[in-house]
Nucleic acid binder design. Structure first.
Lengths: 189, 189
DNA sequence: CAAATATTTAGACGCTTGTCAATATATTGC
DNA sequence: GCAATATATTGACAAGCGTCTAAATATTTG
């Protein structure tokens, strides 16, 4: 990313970042991620190409920013040092609620960018990294019979699986039901 | 894919497919997948660009063919109607042996294309699809307390996790040890 | 307010991409 | 072997990419 997100963003910068990311989401309801061009994003956002490249390295970089902005909406940063299982359910609930509130948009995007598209794989990758970080902060890494790195990945895989089942595959799965699946799959740990 | 893999390939076609896929693997030991260009693949394989596009849609398509050719090497097609767990261990063992025999190449590629690179995510995606297909062929889909689709994905996630632990993260994990991890994580089912 | 500094913009650059029509070269069947 | 057919190659095309310079605007600072 060309733009430094750690320093406080000026009003103008925020407007620009917002414009490009909402345009990206809009275009994703229209076509494949691969089909979206930087030119297109600039035209729809009413910014010159040079401005795009002032902020982002390329469209993949913008995509990362899109996930990052979703991450902030579900307060991915606020994780106390809870044990892994607690963290898992908190994370799951926040993601579940967010997805519920944006069901229509998600389904629109899935029309063109299905579960095994580049877009969704990219999103999975992002969430996985985030979860790895969260689980890394947890205490009690010693209480498992196998290496904690494996446990953390297993937690994050399983959470993602149930989230996908609930939303991407449109199974209309209640939160309670989802919790039950999670509990069943992670019983061994 | 432009070229039809179902019809029997002529000697010439096979030579071309081989040339491009081995060049791809060679280049992947040299740089990021994103950095590899079609021009480059053609120069190194000594074929004109048009020939490349006679066979493949683009470099992603070639990548898919690369995974497909690995798939044939580990006999991904030979799966009888075993139950899910049996299939899992057969698949795991074949993949484990293949990876052991190509450790050096894998590590070279990982230097430039690490675990969370586009390349490795793409590979994960491919393996996941394959495994989904295999598990779909299994009988006994009724014996689980939760939907079989979830179980199948859980199996495939877990297998991939342990394969990654063994090879991509270079933990030098023996096959017996790997089996033990698998068994532990899947105890609940 | 004006000068110093930073950011945005326009436009041009070389390069890669995927497509297409044409020509050349193999591979078939008769 | 020769004609009919398929495949490989050449070279050119428009469009996208990411970079860069220089000019135009904003923003900060004294």
């Amino acid at each position: 990313m060309k733009y430094d997100l750690t320093k406080k963003t000026t009003r103008g910068a925020e407007r620009t970042l917002d414009a490009f990311s909402t345009t990206m989401f809009e275009q994703l309801s229209t076509k494949t991620f691969e089909e979206i061009t930087v030119n297109e994003l600039c035209e729809k956002s009413n910014y010159p190409r040079a401005t795009f490249y002032n902020y982002f390295d390329d469209k993949y970089d913008l995509l990362n920013y899109c996930w990052y902005s979703i991450g902030r909406q579900i307060h991915l940063e606020e994780y106390a040092e809870l044990d892994s299982e607690k963290s898992l359910y908190i994370f799951f609930d926040r993601a579940y609620d967010f997805a519920s509130n944006h069901l229509v948009n998600i389904q629109r995007i899935l029309k063109f960018n299905p579960i095994d598209s580049f877009l969704m794989n990219h999103f999975r990758g992002y969430l996985n990294t985030q979860m790895r970080d969260i689980f890394q902060q947890c205490p009690e890494k010693e209480r498992y019979k196998i290496p904690y790195e494996i446990v953390a990945d297993h937690y994050s895989n399983t959470l993602l699986l149930i989230l996908e089942w609930s939303f991407l595959r449109m199974k209309d799965c209640s939160k309670a039901q989802a919790h039950q699946y999670l509990k069943y799959l992670l019983e061994a740990l």
